[in-house]
């Protein structure tokens, strides 16, 4: 049985999430609400950033730091989402 390392798995997931981001952005052409696609794209970016911090930068071995970075990144992405959605809400 072929086994992959956590690092290789992270790389495969990152590629997959990047493809999903591109597809989500293309959904706009089919008439899907940009607020939905935009939210999806930002959520996928947050997952990718968390994965890079955890597996590439090694924060998986430093849980307290990982929690701190994840929390800050989540608030940052929520801020970006708020700024992105604001024009369509006013």
């Amino acid at each position: 049985m072929v086994t992959t390392s956590p690092l290789s798995r992270a790389w495969i997931i990152l590629i997959f999430l990047s493809l999903l981001s591109a597809l989500a952005a293309e959904l706009v052409e089919t008439g899907v609400d940009t607020r939905i696609t935009g939210s999806l794209v930002l959520a996928l970016s947050l997952f990718k950033a968390r994965l890079i911090l955890s597996r590439y930068l090694g924060l998986c071995d430093a849980p307290a730091w990982r929690r701190g970075f994840n929390l800050t990144l989540t608030f940052f992405c929520l801020g970006l989402l708020g700024l992105y959605l604001a024009p369509s809400l006013s």
Partner: peptide, 9 residues
């Protein structure tokens, strides 16, 4: 940077 500049319509 990529999603904000390129993807968020």
């Amino acid at each position: 940077l990529f999603p904000v500049i390129y993807l968020l319509v």
